[in-house]
């Protein structure tokens, strides 16, 4: 599996061109890092790859996923998972239902689906927390639950939008190791946006600096 950006750039509604003609290939199990100052368009880049750009933004260039051109597909048809800074868990669903929301419909049968969710919870060290209100989880627990939800959807690539920067420094290291290790184990390409030097070092993949 691979994520390939070919001469990708985005024109904002005000006419400004962000990251003119970006080329990047991320192979399976690799975590590439995007850094750059605020306003350089890091989040816009992720939006362009994931299909979340607001109307008015214009994309040129192509996004390939496993060689398939996904540039013109809506977000839900691309198979690209996203993790945000504040893990966005759906507030009306329990933790387990949040994971089940992501779980690929290819897994059929109540029992099989429940098992898959329970297994993912266990992997994330969240055993027995399935029935909990997501609002009662700690920041680190929320981040792990959000990652598992993303992976249960069977994505072909994952985008990480500063997922560690809201965590307190003590937990940060552990969560980062968990997230990076889990992604590597899943053998999917990932793109990490971060301000933090240590994040980029830990990711170990190619680094793109936007200016």
């Amino acid at each position: 599996m691979s994520l390939k950006l070919s001469r990708l750039s985005v024109r904002a509604p005000d006419g400004a061109t962000l990251f003119a003609g970006l080329d990047l290939t991320v192979v399976a199990g690799e975590v590439a890092t995007v850094t750059g100052p605020s306003g350089a368009g890091k989040s816009t880049l992720l939006d362009a790859i994931g299909g979340h750009l607001s109307p008015g933004f214009h994309v040129t260039g192509r996004v390939f996923l496993d060689g398939r051109d996904v540039t013109d597909l809506p977000a839900e048809a691309r198979g690209i998972g996203v993790m945000f800074q504040q893990a966005v868990l759906f507030p009306h669903l329990s933790v387990a239902d949040n994971l089940a929301f992501g779980l690929s419909p290819a897994i059929r049968g109540r029992l099989a689906r429940r098992m898959a969710v329970a297994e993912a919870l266990a992997q994330a060290g969240l055993d027995g927390m399935g029935a909990r209100d997501p609002a009662t989880l700690s920041g680190g627990q929320r981040a792990r639950a959000a990652l598992m939800r993303t992976l249960l959807a069977d994505p072909k690539a994952v985008l990480l939008d500063e997922p560690f920067s809201a965590l307190d420094p003590g937990r940060r290291h552990d969560i980062r190791e968990f997230v990076l290790a889990t992604i590597r184990r899943s053998r999917i390409p990932a793109l990490l946006v971060t301000h933090d030097r240590q994040d980029a070092d830990a990711a170990g993949g190619p680094v793109v600096a936007l200016t």
């Binding site: 994931g50 839900e76 996203v82 994505p155």
Partner: peptide, 8 residues
């Protein structure tokens, strides 16, 4: 966006 990224 999260829901869309999950395929909804």
């Amino acid at each position: 966006r999260t829901a869309a990224a999950l395929g909804a």
